[in-house]
Nucleic acid binder design. Structure first.
Length: 628
DNA sequence: TACTATTTAATTTTT
DNA sequence: TTAAATAGTA
């Protein structure tokens, strides 16, 4: 829409869409320009703030600082960020929605046009709409239109991204005469799985309420496995997967779900060893890869010399003798003369730099000019190919030792073939190159070739929403990991985690395994945690606990007392502290020792309390009682 | 300036 | 653990 109505939207015709990585860089650059300390004003937080405000449909002038100086600064940064984007013709993802909303809101004719054009509106996953999307819907529907929305309040897992379940209630007020149809009969999962899901979600207070049922079979119980550590967990999962495959089932019908992406590594290693093909969802998309963005930055510069983001990205990649010092001079010049870095580079090389540096800058500039000249007249594929070669990026990445460099080079080759396959839309009034570049930020660019090979599916529970699998493993079901430590303190956060758990459980059609590990290495540190509280929320009649195999170098899953003694969790140290040791604090209750540091009177220990969360305590004051 | 050593900090994600 | 940012050195 913005491409079509760029004029009305107040954008330059060739505006560029930036992804969140570009956005973060831009914010960092902004902070540097304004000489703001980025340790006090964390770029990520600013990004979070800006996107959050945009998701609410708010421009800087709409936001009240509420007399809070910190907030005032954030608003002012938002304002500056906006100015830079507007000047550079840059549009971030949140801006796409906000801009399009304003476009409709402020152009009666356009709005009428689209209202006539779309008489029926269907919204899926309605619980995930944010304020701006909802405003969009209302605008487009007008007084007469009655949209049809489908959603499940129990599957609202994107509150942190601005989604508001409340829209489900709001909808009924805004569109009088709404008919609500509850869909409670389920055709996907066994009765056991549904009962478990119902029981877990019933612990949430804020919900519309529904109870899933099925005419189908009761199915098998949910299997819960207590692993010794994450390795053991992976081994277990892989063992069961093997059985599943040997029974003639498709690998693609099995999914391994986890809370956070970092958990995939151990599982991947295991699958690799077992030679079971798998596919990991999420992670970097093709056009988000550094090498691809580098190549695109070269292309962008040939198309638009004033693209500062691209300029900074590649001015010294591969290294060509233009270091931080020189770039800093360019930035200063650009700031003083409100011009682009490209213009600044020319001026600085002429006036301020010594021979060597000036040389380097000049040869960089003539390289870009040469690229533009020599690719003039080539087709898109030819352009991309030629620019990649002239840029020397391939040689640069080939020096990266190991597999990493290889994949990068392969990806660059892949970019050329993507350009070859790219079909420009004749309706778009721009050059094929510009069109290709502007698509890049939006395109997922899957490596679709082997996407349909029969693989086991690995993904986070978030990305599993909307999918279903006959066999599902939910891994890492431990308090602190799932529910995540950062959510447990806040009841709303905990409820969202629970909804996520509900989503996970209901992905399973026939078989569901839940695994947790007593010991897990996270960020290079050993952690000890209790099974997720969500497991305890599943009625025991639906659960079958699986005992560890006897051969494993551990006794049968022991009772709480023997468990800690047999665990190899670090020998006792000089303080009489053992990682994994259970302790009792008179205020915080029971917990487990995670870590310690220091000596004698200064020694501190980190304890994960069951109810009070993780805390650092000074050992000599804490008065901890050891619990065996 | 380029390379190497050290420090820091790490949910969830779709455009 | 690991990737990235930063500080230190040749």
């Amino acid at each position: 829409m913005l491409r079509r109505h760029w004029r009305e939207a107040g954008l330059p015709q060739n505006f560029q869409i930036i992804d969140s990585d570009d956005q973060l860089r831009l914010i960092k650059r902004l902070l540097k320009n304004l000489e703001i300390d980025d340790s006090r004003w964390v770029p990520k937080e600013i990004q979070w703030f800006i996107n959050g405000q945009k998701d609410e449909g708010l421009r800087p002038q709409h936001i009240d600082a509420e007399g809070d100086p910190h907030r005032r600064q954030l608003i002012s940064l938002y304002q500056s960020y906006e100015e830079i984007c507007q000047r550079g013709g840059l549009v971030d993802f949140a801006e796409l929605l906000l801009r399009a909303h304003e476009l409709l809101r402020d152009n009666t004719e356009l709005l009428q046009h689209y209202r006539r054009r779309f008489q029926h509106l269907l919204v899926d996953e309605f619980q995930d709409t944010n304020a701006i999307q909802y405003a969009w819907l209302r605008l487009l529907a007008g007084d007469k239109g009655v949209p049809f929305v489908v959603g499940d309040d129990d599957q609202s897992i994107y509150r942190w991204r601005g989604a508001r379940v409340e829209h489900i209630h709001q909808f009924q007020k805004d569109f009088p005469g709404t008919r609500v149809v509850k869909l409670e009969q389920n055709y996907r999962s066994t009765e056991t799985i549904l009962n478990a899901a119902n029981a877990v979600i019933a612990n949430n207070r804020s919900r519309m309420g529904k109870n899933l049922w099925t005419e189908g079979a009761e199915g098998e119980p949910i299997r819960v496995y207590s692993a010794y550590n994450e390795r053991d967990e992976a081994d277990f999962v892989i063992g069961r997967l093997r059985g599943w495959i040997e029974q003639g089932n498709a690998r693609a019908d099995a999914a391994i779900l986890y809370r956070s992406n970092a958990q995939s590594r151990v599982l991947e290693e295991g699958l690799m060893n077992a030679q079971i093909p798998y596919r990991v969802y999420g992670g970097l998309r093709f056009f988000e890869r550094a090498e691809i963005k580098d190549a695109l930055a070269y292309l962008r510069l040939t198309s638009n010399r004033d693209d500062d983001g691209s300029f900074e990205r590649i001015v010294n990649k591969p290294t060509r003798g233009i270091g931080a010092r020189t770039v800093e001079m360019m930035r200063a010049y650009a700031r003083a003369n409100t011009c682009s870095l490209w213009r600044a580079a020319g001026a600085v090389a002429r006036d301020d730099l010594n021979g060597r540096a000036a040389n380097a800058v000049n040869s960089f500039m003539s390289l870009i000019e040469r690229m533009a000249r020599e690719t003039n007249g080539l087709d898109l594929r030819g352009k991309v190919d030629h620019v990649i070669h002239l840029s020397m990026l391939i040689d640069f990445f080939e020096k990266d030792k190991g597999e990493k460099g290889e994949t990068r080079v392969e990806n660059l080759a892949e970019l050329v073939s993507a350009a070859k396959g790219f079909e420009p839309d004749p309706a778009e009034d721009m050059s094929p190159l510009d069109e290709f570049l502007s698509h890049a930020a939006l395109e997922a660019g899957e490596g679709q070739a082997d996407a349909w090979e029969d693989c086991v599916q690995l993904m986070t529970m978030h990305s599993a929403k909307g999918l279903e699998f006959p066999l599902v493993f939910m891994c890492g079901m431990e308090d602190g990991l799932f529910p995540h430590q950062r959510s447990v303190a806040d009841p709303n956060g905990l409820e969202e985690e629970r909804r996520l758990c509900y989503v996970g459980i209901t992905r399973a059609m026939q078989l569901l395994y839940i695994t947790h590990a007593e010991q897990r290495r996270l960020h290079g540190m050993d952690n000890y945690s209790q099974p997720s509280r969500f497991i305890a929320e599943i009625p025991t009649e639906h659960i079958e606990e699986i005992r560890p195999r006897v051969q494993v170098a551990r006794p049968m899953r022991p009772s709480r007392s023997t468990l800690r003694k047999t665990s190899t969790a670090g020998a006792e140290n000089e303080l009489g502290i053992r990682l994994g040791q259970r302790v009792r604090h008179k205020k915080f209750g029971d917990g487990v020792i995670l870590n310690y540091e220091g000596q004698g009177a200064h020694a501190r220990i980190e304890v994960n309390f069951e109810t009070a969360g993780t805390k650092w305590l000074v050992l000599s004051y804490a008065n901890l009682e050891m619990v065996s």
